[in-house]
Design a protein around this nucleic acid. Structure first.
Lengths: 210, 210
DNA sequence: TTCTTTATATACTCTATAGTATGATATAAG
DNA sequence: CTTATATCATACTATAGAGTATATAAAGAA
């Protein structure tokens, strides 16, 4: 396998991997046959050997993403510790706006207008939410508390790579993760049925810094 | 102005409004001149009278969105009360995944691959984050606490219309909003520098229900 | 070697869209 | 009524991308 070796011929997975890259970089609208072929150094004659049509590429691309690029986290976090609270902390600290979930963001943008993408993303979101929810249940929280807190945890991660305002520094991001972990694992504030009777917890707090 | 009145001629804003609708429904990729013209009951001869080219439409569409469809909230919430804590509650209860922010979601998806859209969205996100941050500052929280809590508030809203897992019911959504408000306005948990020493708040909590 | 299958190239067609050029029509001002 | 201007229609060109048909080359089986 020297550097000068003649280019090996492609598999369906080569196409999927490259298409997923293009999806992440430029969105589903840029996943066109000829440009991707060019990126692979072949022509579209190759494409129509491996796939029926573009529709099949798109469908298999979603399967490829769902099966090959969405399951890393559970293993990674579970391996880190068996304590649900520590697992949550690892999760909050580890899931950064870049890396793994660069694909997620693109699928999410795509899913807004394509029901096929939405179907796959729904499954993935549900699976992850259930995973985090189970952590809170294992900590002893009620079903409803676990539901709220898991959503709150997960939504923050989505916000981190969706909101385009100036993001916090890496240090601050980590600090935020730990503080969120603190608040999320603390017992629920009692008396939540009353809509909004308390007139601001304000002034009594003003000393807290850092 | 009877129902049978002959169709009035269009303005640039008519085009922008319709284009924004198409953007919300089918994404920026569907904002094409001829289809939008058809939706307006005219041909593209009209378009090229009101706009230089598609690029100008796109640019003005972003301006139109930013100036005409992103400022409602501040007024609405501020009118409701002058107490920052109550304003926050109104915000958390009021901002639903549908309505106003159907445009937001589309611009957000668009912004991922178009720097122009990203520039506008960044300003809007920053403005809103600052607004919420100010609420927490007025409540007496430190700068850092206000930063964390405002992001946590805002990110949840983004997650609400981004995450495609089965959403909670309307009642539960409102209940969640009130519970978040409770937790977000409560004083910070002390001793946050220690990474994760406490071995789960678990069993002691398990009685809480509803 | 010869045959077969796999993998890619080349040369087409067809459609959607952007953009242009120019003609038609309506509305208001004179 | 006439004219000018604002608004839109029609008929074109050009390009990008999907899809098809067929030729070609490489690799393995006979």
């Amino acid at each position: 396998m020297t550097v000068l070796e003649k280019r090996r011929r492609l598999t369906r997975e080569d196409w999927l991997a490259k298409a997923l890259d293009v999806l992440a970089e430029e969105g589903i609208g840029a996943v066109c046959i000829e440009p991707v072929a060019k990126a692979l150094g072949v022509t579209k004659g190759s494409f129509y050997w491996h796939f029926e049509d573009r529709d099949e590429l798109v469908e298999r691309l979603l399967e490829y993403w769902e099966t090959e690029h969405t399951d890393r986290l559970g293993d990674l976090v579970a391996a880190d510790s068996s304590d649900p609270s520590e697992q949550l902390l690892t999760l909050l600290e580890l899931v950064t706006p870049s890396d793994e979930n660069r694909y997620d963001a693109s699928v999410r943008a795509w899913a807004r207008y394509d029901p096929r993408a939405a179907a796959h993303l729904t499954r993935v979101d549900q699976k992850r939410l259930d995973y985090v929810r189970d952590l809170f249940l294992m900590m002893g929280f009620s079903k409803e508390q676990a539901d709220l807190r898991s959503r709150w945890s997960y939504y923050y991660m989505i916000g981190e790579y969706s909101v385009l305002a100036i993001p916090p520094s890496d240090d601050q991001r980590l600090d935020f993760a730990r503080r969120r972990h603190r608040m999320l694992t603390a017992p629920p504030v009692p008396g939540c049925s009353v809509p909004a009777a308390q007139p601001a917890a304000g002034a009594a707090i003003a000393k807290e810094n850092a």
